[in-house]
Design a protein around this nucleic acid. Structure first.
Lengths: 187, 187
DNA sequence: AGCTAAAAGCTATCCCGATTAGCTTTCCGC
DNA sequence: GCGGAAAGCTAATCGGGATAGCTTTTAGCT
């Protein structure tokens, strides 16, 4: 029988894609193996197990999110940069809910952990946004946490269908961007 | 052998408490049964299974959160009400991370679903906060989603240890409250 | 070309947790 | 006291994760 030609990166990429389709909770080793045309135990040649797979998916997701947000911000400043970053982040979470879900609850083992590195890149993208506002340097960490909470909260709630009532969700998000802009500008 | 004297409410309450201790993902029927001094299959006399248990825990959590936030807001208005609501919400999530986690991704089956009823009560508490600000009636839904995103995002990120770097987290949260107050007041 | 060893797959198997079936025991109302 | 529903138990099934150990491919070397 011919070799499948897998490697860790291919397994992780397929796992992330499958998680996006069926939800992280439904990502099973069996389903992933079937998707890759291989038997379940073969996956263990490439990843350490479900926890390890989850962790690697988280690294991939964090890295891709950093790329998306970092790229979107390029060439913009102030309110435009804020809007671009927020939209890019939300779009990423909505397009890739499974892999993004893999990132929550993951704690980097140390500063050299790839997860920490990717996380820092994402953070840097948001830090760049803040440079367009006159934020007291002592408050930058607070403002970053606020932006992260706002984007993470909105995107995950929407991805989980957490918004029940009527108003248009895209409209709410644009309102939210305007709100954040006001709050960052007001003294 | 003496009866354990269980009923659905007792099972759900114990399940919520156990979820808070060990994390929702580690809430197993076996562990819950042991906690209650009973064999695993006996639990099925009171709840329909793990999904049903999860759903009932979500209802309990939503209801308790509504009580906490609603109670905290009593007698305050404007910025004080906002701060009281936000603090109460965050405190609830940090004290009860397991049961709160059970609420995300639960969709009420209809308007009479107890989950929907409890969710509406929580929403009402935040709506009361907004009455202290001059929010355009057309924007109330947007503002509610914003507050929910902000509180949910911050609390869940903190509960998952998602804030890596240095600054004091309580301080960040107070800054966030001040930020939201500014944003709601501006324009 | 032929040899070899590591890597990649596979089958068989085990464990654990959820769930169901069916039996037994308690307890409440009469 | 007694009959039946409710609550508990044991036994068994099922599915998913994980490991052990065998087999085959394949890259690198001579």
């Amino acid at each position: 029988m011919p070799r499948a030609g897998l490697d860790p990166a291919a397994v992780v990429a397929a796992g992330a894609a499958l998680a996006d389709e069926v939800g992280l909770a439904n990502l099973t080793m069996g389903a992933l193996a079937e998707r890759l045309g291989v038997r379940t135990p073969s996956l263990y040649k490439h990843v350490g197990g479900q926890d390890d797979l989850n962790r690697r998916i988280a690294v991939l997701a964090m890295s891709q999110a950093a790329d998306a947000v970092g790229g979107a911000v390029q060439g913009y400043a102030g309110r435009d940069a804020l809007a671009a970053a927020a939209r890019a982040f939300r779009a990423f979470v909505l397009e890739h809910p499974g892999r993004y879900a893999a990132t929550i609850g993951q704690e980097p083992s140390g500063p050299d952990d790839p997860l920490a590195v990717a996380g820092r890149r994402l953070l840097d993208a948001f830090t760049a946004v803040l440079r367009g506002y006159e934020v007291d340097p002592a408050d930058v960490d607070h403002a970053l946490r606020m932006l992260r909470s706002l984007c993470h909260g909105f995107a995950t709630l929407q991805a989980a269908n957490g918004f029940q009532w009527s108003a248009d969700i895209d409209e709410s998000f644009e309102w939210l961007i305007a709100f954040a802009d006001r709050g960052l500008r007001a003294r």
